[in-house]
Design a protein around this nucleic acid. Structure first.
Lengths: 217, 217, 217, 217
DNA sequence: TATGAATGAGAATTCATTCAT
DNA sequence: GATGAATGAATTCTCATTCAT
């Protein structure tokens, strides 16, 4: 039959558990990011996943179980992206700039991540704390920053006494807040912050701020 | 009955309505900040306000009406606080530092504000855009910053070319993100960011960053 | 209006909380007795109570809460009936016969009681144990039996050494089992045990058995 | 593969099916006895049987089919046990006592039987009536009792006019009710009726009652 | 003989809201 | 001005069962 025809790429293979699970997870990711845990609707998730509400429970047990899976996948995605970072090949200042751009671009390209983290903070990280597989999530990056700061200090381009955690938070703040609060800020400032030129100019200023912060002089 | 006797001094009755409204608003503020619009429960709000669910509708018409009232009160609170800001009396650098601390302290002292803004961004500022009394909310502050930057430039302590909106966003980012994301960050970093010394050291580093950013040298 | 007309007996008064609660309880009693906890359907209860499913939750919180209320009401009914028992005015043997008939008639006239107790035993008395207001339920009757046995002994018509609890259990067994297991027994024995003459002849034999059991000679 | 190799002695395979069926039946027996038809869960049965839910349907077609099989097995067990009864070798009174003890011990040793009969009565013997292989189930025992009564009458130790069906019901009542209602009775009486000494003393009193009932004097 | 994937129908429960006094 | 009773429409979740291999 067509299903076993090797030439035809099947648009939606039935009985492919992995694919179904993945479709549900992706749909749920969007829904939870947009509406938070309480606002998310199983029905909409099922529709977007081209599956049935029943399957959410089949694979994830409950709304909360699905939410948790979504959250874990989101953090896992960030961590895997961070693994690809290569800062050692660049000069300290260029490396730091690269790091900033990397983080900010990740945020910009993963609006569901922003939404999910927002939702989770609204819920006081209740679900995140219950999930086992986190904790080591940001640390690798912090270590990379610590090494970079030391390298820059040795090279005479960075000043001493900078806490890498603080630096990480500053970088994250400048990228995250702008996107996460774009809606209220746009309403209040009367500018459309999601405009690409606006975004680039924000990033340029932010990069400038970060580099001035660590600069030796 | 005695309650309607016009001769008796209205010790309790006339203020009741206002007091009840206020208690409901406060309770709703906490509930919406903690759980977002969809997650908030009329029943809980009524309980915390020591009133009945019926009264929510009596005074605010609908859940959305109540939410809007809460949101407006929150932004109004920020705006009124900003009115008390006196930057002109201080030297430019001290004034900017004062401004930072003012903003950050407001966030720290108004966790419901953070929660509400978070909730509103999750909802893509849907309610804020519909509400009339906003728009001019941040602008006065931006104007104050613009003036301050000009003063600092004239005094030779600030450099040229700084966008006051960008500066405002940077200040807000550094204060807001830290508090808003304290839950997930604490979980991920293994530090309790809400600790007062941690907070102060973050604020010191942030103030340093802002001042270096605008500094002439 | 008609609602306040004292002459008209209102078939179903709206906004009469007590009446609504009572109708729901009665309907639930029948449903649970007939089908057990798991088999009972909220929808059917609501219909029979001429109310809505929503009201079950409004008044009783959950299916389990409703079931518990039903159970408590059933035991309370038995206890109140037992309070009307007057054994002292009769001669010992007549009093014991009267007691038997009283218990058996109660069972026969309250088939929901049988059903509920059956259901509850199926569930290993899980709900009954959790309910506070029981424990003293059968004891008053046992005390009455103890006094009766003493009186009969003194009068020389009853023999010594009879445990009133055992006597109570025997009386209950002979009446309860017959009705509770009438369905399976009828199927197995090929007689319709619910036939009134059959029932009366069973009661006569049982009364005979009880009296012979306690008889002095 | 090796499993289908016709030369290999079928050590495990051929018995598997039967063993699986039996495990399912046993697990279902417990589940239905504890929770009734409506309360029973296929999932739990499958788990306890170390099989899959799918197998329930594979072997028994439907939940109802499985329940019917369980019920039939339970009654068949009773009937087979009754076949082993040997009353003729004993003196009439000893034979009757033996009969009582036999019935009561069967109940005590087969709590699922009690549970299933309870469940079936709750369901108004719906399933039992539909099942073919019953009807003659209790009759053989009743005939044995009839013969025993006649023998005792002839021997001058039993009185005349006793209905064997009534006697059977009395014996069953005294044994069944005590066990079936042990949960609610224990809760209400404050005694743990399942205690072995309690049970034996109940049986002794009951045996006494039955013997007095039929006794010539 | 066996099994993992899938599902439709229905069940319990919740939510925001209105009615009637 | 205040309140208890009532409700319709979802929403989450469960259950017995079938499909496809």
């Amino acid at each position: 039959m067509t299903a076993s025809d090797p030439d035809v790429a099947p648009a939606r293979r039935p009985r492919d558990a992995q694919a179904t699970r993945a479709r549900i997870l992706r749909a749920a990711s969007q829904e939870f990011a947009r509406l938070g845990f309480a606002g998310a609707r199983g029905e909409r998730i099922a529709q977007r996943a081209r599956s049935s509400e029943r399957m959410l429970y089949y694979y994830y047990g409950s709304k909360e179980g699905l939410y948790r899976a979504v959250l874990e996948a989101a953090y896992l995605g960030l961590r895997q992206a961070e693994r690809t970072l290569e800062l050692d090949a660049l000069a300290p200042q260029a490396a730091l700039a690269h790091f900033c751009r990397f983080v900010w671009r990740f945020y910009a390209e993963h609006p569901e991540f922003i939404g999910l983290v927002n939702a989770e903070n609204l819920a006081q990280a209740r679900h995140l704390r219950r999930s086992g597989q986190l904790a080591e999530l940001a640390l690798p990056v912090v270590e990379q920053l610590r090494a970079l700061l030391a390298r820059g200090l040795a090279a005479g381009v960075f000043r001493a006494g900078i806490d890498p955690v603080e630096l990480y938070i500053a970088v994250a703040s400048l990228g995250y807040f702008y996107l996460s609060n774009a809606h209220t800020l746009s309403a209040v400032l009367g500018r459309n912050l999601k405009d690409p030129p606006q975004l680039e100019s924000h990033w340029a200023a932010s990069e400038d701020m970060i580099l001035r912060f660590v600069s030796a002089r």
